[in-house]
Design a protein around this nucleic acid. Structure first.
Lengths: 101, 101
DNA sequence: TTACATGGTTTGTATTGCAAACCTGTTTTC
DNA sequence: GAAAACAGGTTTGCAATACAAACCATGTAA
């Protein structure tokens, strides 16, 4: 078996969870998104999105900024450099796996 | 966001677990493998491999045949048509995701 | 007989993904 | 101006998971 395939076991588990893959893919494209936009686009419940964002934040993959739009809260999220790189690496690894099966 | 990306949330969870992805990738290539060969190739503990194989068997993705090589047990595994197709679909979905980010 | 491989399976545990319930404030309704 | 409804999230409860360690049944060696 090729190393590309075996190395797949070391894939970034944080990004390998589909909900989070989607969240990060969105953030990768738009640079900044608010909570509700992310929720709609990713098709997640609030609780779910909140939990996933917390994990991504804890890993320093995303930065979360809590502000206000007038008087209502507004949570803005954007990918950090670390998160951006992790996502690029993840894609490379997946791609390499697929190409080597 | 493109549908390819959103549809990623519906990815086959059984195959999306790296250990199982590797197991199935091996079986996809060799048609038939025994337990210990799989263990070495996939780099898993016996317990782990046993558990993953059980899940794949329950989903009818693999067939497990317990025979003997002389007097010692020999467990042979091979992909079913269903498993083969599921793996092909999985790869397509992943590929489509990557290409559309 | 006792020890030690071989080929696995079962058990224990910590982590997870998810939805439902909850919370804090704001706006509307009466 | 109190009560109800809503917006924007967070916390809680639970079932399912991945993993390794312990276990088991059989066969071989000392």
């Amino acid at each position: 078996m090729s190393d590309e395939i075996r190395s797949f076991s070391g894939v970034d588990r944080l990004l390998h969870e589909p909900s989070r893959t989607i969240i990060v893919a969105i953030l990768y494209a738009v640079e900044s998104a608010d909570f509700l936009y992310l929720q709609r686009e990713a098709g997640l419940t609030k609780g779910n999105l909140s939990a996933h964002l917390s994990k991504l934040e804890k890993a320093k993959y995303v930065e979360i900024e809590k502000t206000y739009k007038g008087k209502i809260p507004l949570t803005l999220c954007h990918l950090t450099d670390k998160g951006r790189k992790a996502f690029e690496d993840y894609r490379e690894q997946i791609k390499s796996f697929i190409d080597n099966v």
